[in-house]
Design a binder for these strands. Structure first.
Lengths: 246, 246
DNA sequence: TCAAAAGTGTTTAGTTTACACCCATGC
DNA sequence: GCATGGGTGTAAACTAAACACTTTTGA
């Protein structure tokens, strides 16, 4: 392959918005602290330049692993940011990816190119380098919309989880309290959760653990034209808040 | 701005998937016939190289106008295609855009870089250059999904249209027959259509013409948390087809 | 008077919402 | 024995689906 076009070209980068859940089932995002200029010391999304012989998604994975040690995850393309003034170094177009990961399976440590890597709560996000705030906002919008009609939330949880874990996850992504009984019945009616064992060693009634049956979900999506995964609640003319007080 | 990064860079292009409706309310896509190598003579999506000081969306608009004379339309980013072997000339990453346009307001003519430009029905799409077939498929998937929860269909219609026009549009995008009475009542219940005059000079009962009230849609989307635009039909255990025979 | 498309209402089934109390465990 | 979160059922309101005949016009 020759690659000798005449005209000047933009540089091409990838950036990754990685979401994870913390111990209390709150959504967090993975940021790195930049080691080099521009924006040295600032927090930013992990990412970097695409190599000439590398697919975009591979580049995203590589940069993510290089900077945070997170690897072997499922990522999805978010959007491409290409305003001509978005990078002080010159014309840089960035293809953004996002992923939802299970925080426990993917320990984070800062490595090459990054001074530091850490998980941030949404309400504690610092100023970010470049237009990374805009990218992050777009990613949040995307998962908020997507979680309603695709079972992406399960990517964030360990293999076995309780319905309360799942509900807190939805509440955290949607930024909205959900009614417990309705959440449970809607989720169970989808018939995509398999019972595992019960919890042990909790100082309250032990909860049922479930596993998400991904295979079944995929079969239904393929075969059954009528099957729709949908988790959406509307709240009738919201006068009273929350779940009732017993 | 300096733009002197050392490493070799991919080239960056934009491609446009433009949808329009023909006289019989069938969906079509705008293709050009390439004037130059590679793939000279092949049909392809309109598009071309991004200039160094040009935003991505501007590039998409410029290329579209250069090749097809279509201009002043609302376009939206679709996806970025960057497999390293997608272009025989070397490494080329392409940011794809899509748009839905009203065919009558935007006459098409081939110009610079294109031998020819024409609207194709979905079942008559020829072999396309590069990975443009894949881009097109992704665009169709996108509008099929989006038309269910955003009123994008109206972009395809003239200002005033009948409910039958609108229904045919939905049927054409979704590839599915819809029940006329249910379609009408669902659409009217949204309360986003304004009555205009009636049809004249048709050799059957003249239909009511409507205009889409975009302002009202936007207000409701902003203010009313409960408001959801949704046009989706499920068909109960599909035994009988079509509308009943009178 | 015919052809062609517009227009309309109701019943039924299914889904969504709202809501309050008892249960099981560890400490 | 108490604190903590787990677990459950139902009635009422609403929404979606199915379905057949009459109307209006031009030719």
């Amino acid at each position: 392959m020759n690659n000798s076009f005449e005209h000047p070209k933009p540089s091409l980068t990838v950036d990754c918005v990685i979401f994870g859940l913390d111990e209390s089932n709150e959504l967090r995002v993975l940021l790195i602290q930049r080691a080099y200029e521009p924006f040295a010391g600032s927090w930013a999304l992990p990412g970097g330049f695409v190599k000439i012989d590398e697919d975009l998604e591979s580049a995203a994975r590589r940069e993510l692993e290089e900077e945070t040690a997170v690897k072997d995850i499922y990522i999805e393309q978010l959007y491409t940011f290409g305003n001509f003034d978005r990078d002080p170094r010159g014309r840089v177009v960035s293809v953004a990816y996002y992923a939802l990961i299970n925080l426990k399976n993917h320990p984070v440590k800062a490595s090459t190119d990054a001074k530091n890597a850490a998980w941030f709560k949404f309400d504690e996000i610092p100023e970010l380098a470049f237009d990374h705030k805009e990218i992050l906002v777009k990613a949040i919008d995307r998962i908020r919309a997507k979680v309603l009609y695709k079972p992406i939330g399960f990517e964030l949880l360990p293999e076995k989880f309780t319905l309360s874990d799942l509900q807190k996850l939805y509440e955290s992504i949607l930024g909205q309290q959900l009614n417990r009984r309705n959440f449970r019945s809607k989720m169970l009616k989808l018939d995509l959760l398999e019972e595992a064992e019960r919890q042990t060693k909790v100082s309250h009634r032990p909860a049922q653990l479930y596993k998400f049956n991904k295979r079944k979900y995929e079969e239904l999506s393929r075969k059954d034209g009528k099957f729709i995964f949908e988790i959406r609640f509307q709240q009738r003319d919201s006068k009273g808040e929350e779940d009732e007080i017993d």
